[in-house]
Design a protein around this nucleic acid. Structure first.
Lengths: 169, 169
DNA sequence: ATGAAAGGTTCATGTTGTCAAATGTTCAGG
DNA sequence: CCTGAACATTTGACAACATGAACCTTTCAT
């Protein structure tokens, strides 16, 4: 798990604003999470299953990679994929180049379900409506800059692949 | 689940900026989530336990209220509080006015753990470092306004208290 | 060829989450 | 006062998720 050295962060006392932003983020995270689980449940998927399915929109992928992206143990993925497979949402294919590897691929049903779920994710559509156009743009820029620093850690985000432009590297 | 009427949201096509903001949010959410779980685990707490403990920073609170805030079944809270209690992080007190109610209160150990965890949350300390002071302030204001519309329902701090700065756009 | 290392699976165990069925309490009517 | 509806919490059964250790099979570097 702790594959991250987690650079020792200077113990500088967090300033008030940062503190508050972190709290606001926590609220946002909770909100988003709830919406996501709800939207998944509405399609009788669990959050974890929906995440895996979302990941597979980019194409087939080894289990190992899924586990890494989701920061969890590979043995965990086995079960999740089992359940998805038994419902016809994904398949396991053999990798041509390495017979140890199993490539998980979304079936059409899986793809559809995932896309549909993504569309239904109106998270922040309402919260975001409270902002004006240029404010949204400002927010976008600030968020972009924040994420740029972090590196492509994991686009694991449930709904993480629309950005055509991607973060300006 | 329960209290949510799940208003049918107008199917207005999401505009490009909103879409991108949502994706950025998703990434941020994933990042934050990982850090939170990790920080909790470092203190041998689970995410759910940490959330409950964080809620209790505001004072003792009936289980029912915890369940509502976390949007889960009350029976679920029973177990979580059980585990917290068995480790001396919270206590169950009787409510004076209503003997059906049990008030869950953080012990000093619980309070300390929660505060410590909160401090250690250097999420965004790094991402946020990419921003200047006034930019952080701008971000804070935008997030505040977004969350104001949604109503309370999230833990993690005094941030949820509404600050009716008229979003009269 | 041999052995270390990697990718997946299996098993045991613990936490979270749901639902349905108790238990005890409060409160509004009759 | 008594009864029954509504409420807060708990219990029990069960599915999903998550971790860690043990185990194959396959790959790869000697």
């Amino acid at each position: 798990m702790d594959t991250q050295p987690t650079e020792v962060v200077a113990p500088q006392p967090t300033d008030a604003i940062t503190r508050e932003v972190v709290d606001l983020m926590a609220n946002l995270v909770a909100l988003f999470h709830r919406e996501y689980e709800e939207a998944a449940a509405a399609r009788s998927l669990t959050g974890a299953q929906a995440k895996v399915l979302a990941l597979l929109r980019r194409g087939p992928m080894p289990m190992r990679h899924i586990a890494q992206t989701l920061s969890c143990e590979p043995s965990n993925i086995t079960g999740i994929v089992d359940r998805l497979e038994s419902r016809g949402f994904v398949t396991r294919e053999a990798d041509q180049h390495d017979r140890r590897v199993k490539l998980v691929a979304a079936t059409e049903a899986g793809s559809d379900a995932s896309e549909e779920l993504r569309e239904s994710l109106n998270f922040a559509r309402e919260p975001l409506a409270a902002l004006g156009d240029d404010e949204r743009a400002t927010l976008r820029d600030l968020l972009r800059r924040m994420l740029d620093g972090v590196g492509p850690g994991a686009p694991a985000g449930p709904a993480a692949s629309t950005d055509p432009a991607g973060p300006a590297a």
